[in-house]
Design a protein around this nucleic acid. Structure first.
Length: 845
RNA sequence: GCGGAUAUGGUGGAAUUGGCAGACACGUUGGUCUUAGGAACCAAUGGGAAACCGUGCAGGUUCGAGUCCUGUUAUCCGCACCA
């Protein structure tokens, strides 16, 4: 037997697959189809990370198995290549982003190919390719034409690090999702996409798709739908102040109002001079505007506010006058930017009322409003509320809504946390927004025939001082003619965010070279929707939400024939690395040195925490360049081979959970493959499974098949390891057995299995074979070993023919030496037999 | 604060629907082979001398609980003044 030279074996098969187009999706639309999708990567300068292959290999196994089961499989790959890191790199090194992108893509591609993933490379897409972004721009124009894209002066999130505007989804706790810099507010004129118009459907249609629960709940929470009412209060100045509330039943308990500091009425009153404490109010407004999101949350514990002196409101329920405050705990961007405060039944209002000495009225009985706000909607009964008295909260809400609408004082209303999508970025490396501004005609869309609107060739990518796009400096590009009147006009200089190109890329794979449309109607109808989409949880409220929104829009305008883009969505856990700053991961010498230095292990650990922060307490952390714990898949492929890398990534643990990388454990996978390789020495003739292995094989086929379908590759592999252990014990493997074993392994380790299959002449190429079938009836052995328990404690074991009746089993059980001894002198109370599983005898005395 | 998830040997992790806890690996120990290092292979490996005890902790249901119920703790994730 030749030794297992994985490098040449893997190269050989990769070349053959490329040459034969083995994994190309077929153009035949009559075949049953399966579309497997993984998120296309951002081709960063760092190259592939060991995290990438985890997701890619898992779906590769699914795709390979589906092909073997006769499906026409589409498993494509491409590049989400617009984005800031490339642009920043280009700026630092004075290389055009296009060249940087090209280089990074080439590197990523060769890395991916060295893993032996069965992508259909004929369908590769790249979001920075003008033939691609032409259609991204086209979709934008359709959005514009349908009133879903608009330009608006907005208070936006601005990243101080990236010098760019961010979408709400890109801000995490007041910091930039990408670079971690602080986010501040700026007023800017921005293109916006009306994702809010789809808020209801983005929630409701989740019931028709098979997404893992946490993805669904995260999307639902992000969209944040709440049902309630808008109620009109009147001010002593005669204005109408509309509030949104989910608890209209508590109207009689509203003892004051709060407006957000940015509320339009506040400025109006200031201008009219009706406020006696105008100075104080202005100061509060300025202070609130200055606060970043971060400060606003940090300071959330202690409530602040100013009472508007000179104006009051009338509670439409009680008819009583109540004071109006401004406070930054009321958000300008949610609801109407104004609330009725019901301190008895809202925790925030209660805190505010306590601080400012405002009256607290109980209108729902059931708690003690002097102690804390009573917010329970299930148990209380309305009191002090006129016509609502005696009703439950639910009944009171209904009655109040009826009363409000009949009196014209309010109406039912649904509100969302979701905001429209800020779609402009002041950067070069993105799709130009195909809009033109004309003094006479206003904003005009570029005619579709003029797409793609290409990026101009420039060399200065730095964003402008005032946060304007670098494109704005290039007059020859900016100055154009108005598509409407033909007069002089200027192009929009902002570009689209990175999420634009990825919002529809899965459609382009269906027909990537189409020059007439994003894809042909036939291709869209046949391939879509994506049958299985796997990707990171970090994209749940970004890419996943955005692409569902675009897709629904494309459905509405008749471009795609189905409402949801993805039938099924799963998510992989991260691959973590060892934390070199954690005490337990340090070398013995370093540990000893630290202990000597600080006196004890505890003190040494404490010192590490002081030095590096809490992170030092975690033995496993995200891989990062600064910690130097990043594992490069190239090294693993060089030292162990692609099949070992694939197998290890699948064996590492539950696919959905984060898992620490362990270079030790990878050897076990290598060993297993060596074992598979050396099985060829035991090869004997035989075209059926030998009787002693028959049940093991049928069970393995069943288990491996279902495990691939449910992403439980770790147990599939364990099953095959156990099967190999069983085979080795017999000292031989016959041709039928070897063939089945190689088939089962093929989706995980395609190179070594093809090679062995060829060397032993077992069949033609495995890639064109049929997935093995099992027979349920043959999954069971002829006899089973059953444990015998007495009072639930294991006392003996018996071997009986499978499916023996209870009498036989009990008789045998009682004959067992240990069991008989344990029964001695006791009274048998109950006998329990679980067929083929266990015997339990309950005794007394 | 609210919501969700998780907790099993020295480690990663298994365990149909309540039915032999620790599959499969890693590591460790011993052995074989080797000039050596390594690799490979074989054996043992939850704790305990044993009776027994063992799935974060405390209860409960059951003939039987890692699994179900009640309470509790820790960790992780999401949301976070959303009226």
């Amino acid at each position: 037997m030749a030794s297992y030279d994985f490098t040449s074996v893997e190269k050989k098969w990769q070349n053959k697959w490329a040459k034969d187009n083995t994994f190309a999706a077929k153009q035949d639309y009559t075949l049953p189809k399966f579309y497997a999708l993984v998120e296309f990567p951002y081709p960063s300068g760092d190259g592939l990370h060991v995290g990438h292959p985890r997701s890619y290999t898992a779906l590769d196994a699914v795709a390979r198995k589906k092909r073997l089961e006769g499906f026409n499989v589409l498993y494509p790959m491409g590049w989400d290549a617009f984005g800031l890191p490339t642009e920043n790199f280009a700026m630092q090194h004075h290389i055009h982003p296009e060249i940087v992108t090209e280089r990074n893509v080439a590197r990523f591609k060769s890395q991916l190919q060295s893993i032996g993933l069965s992508f259909d490379w004929n369908r590769e897409v790249n979001t920075t390719d003008p033939d691609y972004y032409r259609w991204t721009q086209w979709i934008f124009l359709q959005l514009y034409k349908h009133g879903l894209a608009y330009k608006k002066e907005m208070n936006v999130n601005y990243c101080t690090g990236c010098k760019v505007v961010l979408a709400n989804e890109e801000v995490v706790n007041g910091f930039c999702e990408r670079c971690g810099s602080q986010v501040i507010h700026k007023t800017k004129s921005q293109w916006m996409l009306k994702i809010t118009a789809y808020a209801d459907r983005l929630i409701d249609d989740l019931k028709d798709v098979d997404f893992i629960e946490r993805v669904k709940t995260q999307q639902i929470n992000w969209i944040g739908r709440s049902y309630g009412a808008e109620i009109n209060f009147t001010s002593t100045q005669g204005d109408t102040i509309t509030v949104f509330t989910t608890r209209c039943d508590t109207l009689f308990g509203a003892t004051y109002m709060v407006l957000s500091p940015e509320h339009a009425l506040v400025s109006q009153w200031l201008e009219k001079g009706v406020l006696k404490n105008a100075e104080e109010v202005r100061e509060y407004q300025i202070a609130a505007a200055k606060k970043s999101d971060l400060e606003r949350t940090e300071l959330s514990k202690e409530k602040t506010g100013v009472c508007l002196d000179g104006v009051a409101a009338v509670n439409p329920g009680t008819g009583k006058e109540i004071p109006i405050y401004i406070s930054d705990y009321v958000l300008a961007t949610y609801g109407t930017g104004a609330i009725m405060a019901v301190p008895g039944h809202d925790t925030r209002d209660w805190e505010f009322a306590k601080k400012f000495g405002l009256p607290i009225i109980e209108v729902v009985k059931g708690g003690n409003v002097e102690e804390e706000a009573f917010t329970d909607c299930e148990t209380g009964t309305l009191v002090n509320s006129g016509f609502l008295n005696g009703k439950t909260v639910e009944e009171a809400k209904e009655a109040m809504l009826e009363w409000l609408s009949s009196e014209g004082k309010g109406r039912k209303q649904v509100n969302f946390k979701l905001r429209d999508w800020v779609f402009s970025r002041q950067r070069y490396w993105g799709e130009p927004i195909p809009m033109v501004y004309c003094e006479k005609c206003g904003w005009q869309p570029l005619p579709e025939e003029e797409l793609p609107l290409r990026l101009p060739e420039i060399t200065d990518f730095e964003p402008g001082e005032g946060g304007e796009s670098p494109l704005s400096r290039h007059e020859e590009w900016v100055n154009t003619t108005c598509p409407c009147c033909g007069g002089p006009a200027k192009r929009e200089t902002d570009t689209m965010p990175q999420w634009a190109g990825s919002s529809w890329y899965f459609l382009r794979y269906m027909d990537p070279h189409n020059n007439e449309a994003i894809a042909s109607p036939e291709a869209l109808a046949y391939w879509g929707p994506v049958d299985w989409y796997n990707g990171g949880m970090e994209h749940t409220t970004l890419h996943l939400l955005y692409s569902r929104f675009w897709h629904k829009f494309l459905y509405d305008i008749g471009v795609v024939p189905y409402k949801e883009p993805y039938k099924k969505r799963t998510s992989h856990g991260m691959i973590l690395g060892l934390n070199p700053r954690s005490f337990v991961n340090m070398s013995k010498e370093d540990q000893d040195r630290l202990v000597a230095e600080h006196g004890s292990v505890e003190a040494a650990k404490k010192a590490l925490v002081e030095k590096y922060g809490e992170m030092a307490e975690h033995p496993v952390v995200k891989m990062s360049k600064s910690l130097k714990n990043v594992v490069n898949p190239d090294d693993i492929i060089r030292d162990y081979g692609a099949d070992t890398l694939r197998l290890y990534e699948m064996f590492i643990g539950d696919f959905e959970q984060a898992a620490p990388w362990s270079t030790n454990s990878i050897r076990g996978c290598k060993r297993f493959l060596e074992r598979i390789w050396s099985l060829q020495d035991m090869l004997v003739d035989g075209d059926t499974y030998r009787p002693e292995l028959e049940a093991s094989f049928h069970r393995a086929i069943k288990k491996v098949g279902s495990d691939i379908d449910t992403l439980k590759a770790n147990t599939a592999i364990a099953t095959m390891m156990a099967l190999v252990n069983d085979i080795v014990k017999t000292g031989a493997i016959n041709r039928a057995e070897y063939h089945t074993l190689l088939m089962l392994l093929n989706p995980f380790v395609p190179h070594i299995t093809e090679e062995l299959n060829e060397r032993c002449g077992l069949s033609g190429e495995l890639a064109y074979e049929t997935w093995p079938v099992y027979d349920e009836a043959k999954c069971v052995d002829s006899s089973v070993e059953m444990p015998v328990q007495i009072n639930g404690k294991l006392r003996g074991r018996i071997t009986v023919p499978t499916d023996s009746d209870n009498e036989t089993v009990l008789a045998l059980a009682k004959q067992d030496e240990k069991v008989a001894a344990a029964l001695e002198g006791k009274t048998l109370v109950k006998e329990i037999v679980v067929k083929n599983k266990l015997v339990n005898l309950v005794v007394k005395g």
